[in-house]
Computed example of a mutant assay.
Amino acid sequence: MNYLKENEPARYKTLMRFGKMYEKMSAVEEEANQLYDQLEMQYLAKHKPQDLSSTMEMWKIREQAKMQAEEVVLHQIVMRFH
């Protein structure tokens, strides 16, 4: 919603005026969460830890998956904003 308010103020005002903001934000959030989960799982499936008992290695792999998924979601869904 902040992205929309800052980058597309006319659309933000229109959605607010007609009471459609919550509906649109819910749809965007749902799509973003689905893509995020999918991307994170794909990354984790491809990048298995060499040492299964290494907490640090697992943490690093999960952090990398999280960062990549967030970046893709940000650019493909949030910035595009349908």
Rank of each mutant, 00 (worst) to 15 (best):
M1E: 14
M1S: 13
M1L: 12
K5T: 01
E6H: 10
E6F: 10
E6Y: 12
N7H: 15
E8T: 09
P9L: 05
P9R: 06
A10I: 12
A10T: 10
A10E: 14
A10G: 04
R11N: 08
R11C: 01
R11E: 08
Y12R: 04
Y12T: 00
Y12P: 02
K13C: 09
T14N: 10
L15S: 05
L15H: 06
M16K: 14
R17G: 07
R17S: 12
F18K: 13
G19W: 13
G19E: 06
G19M: 04
G19P: 08
M21R: 06
M21Q: 05
Y22R: 13
Y22A: 10
Y22D: 13
Y22L: 08
E23F: 08
K24T: 07
K24F: 06
M25H: 09
S26Q: 10
A27F: 04
A27I: 08
V28M: 12
V28L: 15
V28S: 02
V28N: 04
E29R: 15
E29G: 08
N33T: 11
Q34N: 13
Q34A: 13
L35N: 11
L35H: 09
Q38V: 03
E40N: 11
M41I: 07
M41R: 15
Q42V: 10
Y43M: 02
L44M: 14
L44Q: 05
A45S: 13
A45G: 08
K46A: 13
H47L: 01
H47Q: 00
H47Y: 15
H47S: 01
K48N: 03
K48T: 11
K48A: 03
P49L: 04
P49S: 06
P49G: 03
Q50E: 13
L52S: 09
S53H: 08
S53T: 15
S54I: 09
S54M: 07
T55V: 11
T55M: 03
T55H: 06
T55F: 04
T55R: 07
T55D: 05
M56Q: 11
M56N: 09
E57G: 02
M58F: 07
M58P: 02
M58I: 12
W59Q: 12
W59E: 11
W59C: 05
K60M: 04
K60G: 00
I61A: 02
R62H: 11
R62W: 01
E63Q: 09
E63G: 00
E63I: 00
Q64W: 07
A65T: 04
A65S: 10
K66H: 01
K66V: 01
M67S: 13
M67L: 15
M67H: 12
Q68L: 10
Q68D: 07
E70K: 15
E71Q: 14
E71G: 08
V72Y: 03
V73L: 06
V73N: 03
V73W: 02
L74D: 11
L74W: 14
L74I: 08
H75S: 11
Q76P: 05
Q76M: 12
I77C: 04
I77Y: 09
M79R: 15
F81C: 00
F81D: 02
F81N: 03
H82W: 14
